[in-house]
Amino acid sequence: MEYNLEIINLTKNYQDFHLEQINIKLPKGKIIGLIGENGSGKTTTIKSILNLMAYDKGSIKIFGKDSRFLTKKEREEIGVVLDDSFFSPILNVNDINKLMKDFYSNWNEKLYYDTIKKFKIPCNKPLKEFSSGMKMKIKVLCAIAHEPKLLILDEPTNGLDPIFRYDIIELFNDFVSNGENSILMTTHITSDLEHLADEVIFIDEGNIILDVPKEKIDNEYGIIELLEDNFTKVDKQDYIKSLKYKNEYYILVNSKDEFQKKYPKLEIRKPTLEELMLMLVKGE
């Protein structure tokens, strides 16, 4: 299998935080969702990929080459959205187009302005007068208008209204549909990944605690809601985590068919990614 991005044993030690042995392999044509709490290590991972900070151990390969030694031409094949960083808010859409034309030899001005028109973004207004959702639209557009092969997206749906979130999810699905392009995206809006991600990686306190294909979560993981009487009847070895919320117990299983065979009267439903995240972090 060919990978657009490979992270092998990435380790970064801070005084009060350690990113431990992160391994991520992003094949061509796939989308990986990196989820986790604030401060779990998602941004450190993204920064390491983009060489914004040095890491202590491990290696990162983009298009099969050490990410630290990519040429400018190879870096033009990457599109990036960063949640907390962009051009000065004094700039407008036209200014950004002129700058990007200088930064990217393959900048597609037509695609840029066609999408600006589609998104109904005013061209002469400075960014500071836009809502956070509008700004995010421009950021996403800047990441795709040079037609990259790999998208690295840090919270790309932050601040977007549901309609545009839908549009952008469609746009990302189209992006990978050629089987060559890939996306690595972090998000705390896990619902966006429900219809988007091929693989979900859950990172907590610097460690990957879950790395599974989305299909497996849909087909094999399950959540069961129980009252205390029923909960005490379930063997601890038959579930991964349990969580008490108000008067109910929730248990998470990773082999729902086997569980169903053993407990045929209990109703199992598919967990949302948010529930999965909650169970894995807060559950016992």
Binding site: L50, V80, L82, D84, S85, F86, Y104
Partner: peptide
């Protein structure tokens, strides 16, 4: 100052800029 406020260097370094 403007670069610092917008954290522009971070974004610029994610583009093909050294």
């Amino acid at each position: 100052s403007y670069d610092e406020n917008a954290d522009s260097d971070k974004y610029l370094l994610s583009l093909p800029i050294t």
